[in-house]
Structure formats: C-alpha cells, structure tokens
Design a protein around this nucleic acid. Structure first.
Lengths: 150, 150
DNA sequence: TGCGATTAAATCGTGTGCAACTCAATCAGG
DNA sequence: CCTGATTGAGTTGCACACGATTTAATCGCA
C-alpha cells in the first residue's frame, strides 16, 4: 500500500471506532428503554428535562447538540406519550417551553437503574475506582474532541 | 439530588459524550466529503472496498457492523453514482458481490488527504508521536467498548 | 412609529439505522 | 431425490439527523 494511503486505513480505525461504538451503545440501551416506551434520543431529552424542567426547545437543543428539525418531531412524540407538555412562552411567543408531565417525572424512577445496568453489561465495575476513573477519562477525551470539532 | 439519581447525571455525561462526539465527527467529515459526492457512511463503505474489493454485502456489513437493511439502499446509491457495481455470485445466487468501478477506484486519490485534514481540524498533530499514541489508545478503548457491548 | 434584520420553531427533503418480515437460493437429513 | 431448515439480500415501517427553507414574533434603529 502506498505511503499516502496509510491514513485511509488508520483513520478508518479511529473515526469508525467512534461511529461503531456509538451505535453499539444505542443498541445496548434500546432493550433497557423499551419498558419505558422511549428511544435513546428521547431518553437523552428526558435526562435533560429531569435536571432542568420547563426549558425551551432551543436550550434543550444546546444541551444535546440537536436542532429543532430533530427535536420538534421527537418532542411531539414524547407529547403524544403524555410525558411532556409544550406551550408557548407568554413573554415571547416564538419560544416553546417543554415541561414534564406527572407521568414524565414519574418515569425517572424507572430509569434509575438503567445506567448502572448498562455499565455492568459493558463490563465496568462501578465499585472499582480505577474503572470509574477510566470511564471519566474516556468521557473527557470524547467531550474534548467534540468541542474541538464543534 | 437523591443518591440513586447520581448515575442519571454521570451516565448522561459518558454515553452522551460518545453520541455527541460521533455526530460531531460525521458533521466535520461531511464538508470534506461533499466534493466527492458521498456521505460519511458511503465513505466508510468505500474505505472497506478500497481495501478489499469485490466482497459480498454480508462481508461488508460484518466490517461496518451494518445489516442489509442499511447497506442495500446505500449501495444502490453508490451504484447510481457509478462508483460501484453489484452482481450476483455465480456459485451462489443468494450472494451479491460489490465491486468498485474505475470511477470508484479513482475516488481514492481524492480521499487521500481527508483523514489528515480532519485530524488537523480536531487539533491533533500527526507529527507528534504522543498525539498519535493518544489517538490510538482512544481508538482501542472505543473498539473494546463496542466489542464488550456487541 | 414603522420596517428591515434577527431570532425561535417548524417544515421539507434526503440519507441513514434497525427491527421485523419476505423471498429466493442453498443445504441437509431422511 | 425431496422437503423442511437455513442463509443472504431485499423490503417495510419508523425514528432519528441535518442542511435548507419557511413562518411568525420580536428587536433595533432611523
């Protein structure tokens, strides 16, 4: 293989690893989320809302790095499930505020065990400080990477 | 926040970092791929074909961790662009073999600079052995993670 | 005050991903 | 040989992602 083609190999390994790992995580989550009746992106939106309820579509999009083209239909599906409510902000009718319903808030309890269950399936021992540190280092590097590319 | 809810935070940081970084990479690639007229997943398929031409849809799917539901339409689009050809394997008519056309092979030259260009945009100095080692370590951890989840 | 620029969502079109299913070709056991 | 199981692609239906455009509300400034 020509010298210049090396990177077409090497690179596939790196960027592809990220792409494949991301899809593997989503696939691993889906069966755990199925009992809640939500998808992985919907779950991410709920995580944000469980932390800060009653925020705008834009603010939610900033947190998730998703735009309204993706969020609007996703939130409508969550609305149809009765998990969130959508209303215009009185002071600025351009803004749509998303708030959790009682059912949406209640779902948090059912979601509580999911992360540790997944960590377990991925072979991480959350009792082991070294494993936790490795997880956090990995997370930091990925967040860094995304920041530099964003 | 209740003790049990901590993971709903922590976890979002980890799995979300992976999900966000993956999307950031794809977004970063797209403008570089636009001149070639292919999308990121199509580019991944071409990377495999540039390494091992004339393989079955199934073999391609094994390499990319994608099934025929995703690959069949993707490959038809590559075929319409005149980059690949699809034909049944004579010894086993169930199998469809994908091979590069002259145009598909030629595209490799135009793709050569893309990986290093992207590494540069991500702030990696490929001349620095430490940076390269960091990239490889990251790749290994992600591949490991995907393997454990798969 | 009036009006062009800006902003926040929503909409549109295209291309993935993936579960579930169909269809045709091959295989395997009797 | 048959016939039922298996296998490899393809199809269907649904839910993202995202660039580009549209619409409505607000802002800024002459």
């Amino acid at each position: 293989m020509a010298r210049d083609d090396r990177h077409l190999e090497l690179d596939r390994q790196l960027c592809f690893a990220l792409y494949a790992a991301s899809r593997a995580i989503v696939r691993a989550y889906d069966p755990l989320l199925a009992p809640l009746g939500v998808t992985y992106p919907q779950y991410l939106a709920l995580l944000v809302l469980w932390e800060s309820d009653d925020i705008s579509v834009g603010a939610l999009g900033d947190r998730l790095a998703l735009d309204s083209a993706t969020l609007t239909p996703l939130l409508k599906r969550l609305e149809q499930q009765g998990l969130v409510a959508r209303r215009r902000k009185p002071e600025d009718e351009r803004v749509v505020l998303i708030s959790l319903t009682a059912r949406g808030r209640a779902l948090r309890a059912k979601a509580r065990e999911i992360p540790s269950e997944l960590a377990c399936r991925a072979g991480f021992d959350l009792e082991d400080p070294r494993a936790v540190a490795r997880l956090e280092a990995l997370r930091e590097e990925l967040a860094d990477l995304a920041r530099r590319l964003g």
